[in-house]
């Protein structure tokens, strides 16, 4: 069974929930520093708030909560993408060391915690497995931040607007969602997907194209050619 499973999870409304609430609550019971962040209804803090606490207060309990949620998932993702057990463990460690070091730069207005952690894990994975540095867009260079701040209200990846995207994903038929996952996140060639799924190569390509077109439509992006790529 696939680890990252049922790409069909794409299609489940539940998959919108980033935080497993029961699990978070368990850890929250021991973290008085986070009590303030909880509402009267004892809603667990959002991962974004935890990450901000790590950045601003060096809050170890918040850090641990994030670790306990993301570490096993990241490890599963890494192993699924070809890392050996020991290498995956090492990359998870490197990822969380970087999360701690960079947490002060995290801006919840610009990205969801899950997206931010995912990009760090992706970059650490390439450092480790390919022995090369991934070109990171958000370096510490002010020139790049200038470009990012041009459209702060339009940021696509903050926790609230990410849901819009997920809604688009959920409209994808399961077969298209599964192919997307294989093509883009498991880095399989179209031929390898065709062999594995026993779907003819031409069908694989046309379904991927359909899926991408739907995502584009769902992201409320104007259908445009490359030549008109500006907003």
């Amino acid at each position: 069974m696939t680890m990252l499973c049922p790409a069909f999870a794409f299609c489940l409304p539940e998959s919108l929930a980033f935080q497993p609430r029961a699990r978070l609550k368990k850890h929250m019971a021991h973290t008085p520093t986070q009590e303030a962040a909880r509402t009267a209804a004892s809603v667990p803090p959002r991962h974004e708030d935890l990450l901000v606490q790590v950045g601003t207060r060096r809050d170890r309990a918040a850090f641990r909560t994030l670790f306990e949620y993301y570490a096993p998932r990241l490890k599963a993702y890494l192993i699924k993408n070809g890392a050996a057990e020991s290498a995956a463990e090492e990359i998870v460690q490197n990822t969380f060391v970087t999360v701690w070091e960079k947490a002060a730069q995290y801006d919840p207005k610009k990205s969801a915690a899950s997206t931010w952690i995912f990009t760090i894990a992706r970059n650490r994975r390439i450092d480790a497995l390919r022995r090369e540095k991934y070109v990171e867009i958000d370096s510490d260079n002010p020139a790049l931040h200038l470009a990012a701040s041009d459209a702060p209200d339009d940021a696509y990846a903050d926790a609230a607007t990410v849901e819009k995207l997920h809604a688009a994903i959920e409209t994808l038929p399961a077969d298209q969602a599964a192919l997307l996952r294989m093509a883009f996140f498991e880095d399989k060639t179209h031929q390898a997907i065709a062999d594995e799924t026993r779907i003819p190569l031409g069908t694989v390509k046309s379904r991927l194209r359909l899926a991408l077109e739907k995502l584009r439509g769902g992201m409320a992006l104007r259908k445009k050619t490359q030549g008109q790529a500006h907003d």
């Binding site: 998932r73 599963a76 463990e89 990410v162 995207l165």
Partner: peptide, 22 residues
């Protein structure tokens, strides 16, 4: 950023029993 959010979702969607314990 939207595609990165999809990648993040793939990790988050990983059910607990499928996750690899560290």
């Amino acid at each position: 950023e939207a595609y990165e959010a999809i990648g993040a979702k793939m990790i988050c969607d990983c059910a607990e029993e499928d996750a690899a314990p560290v």
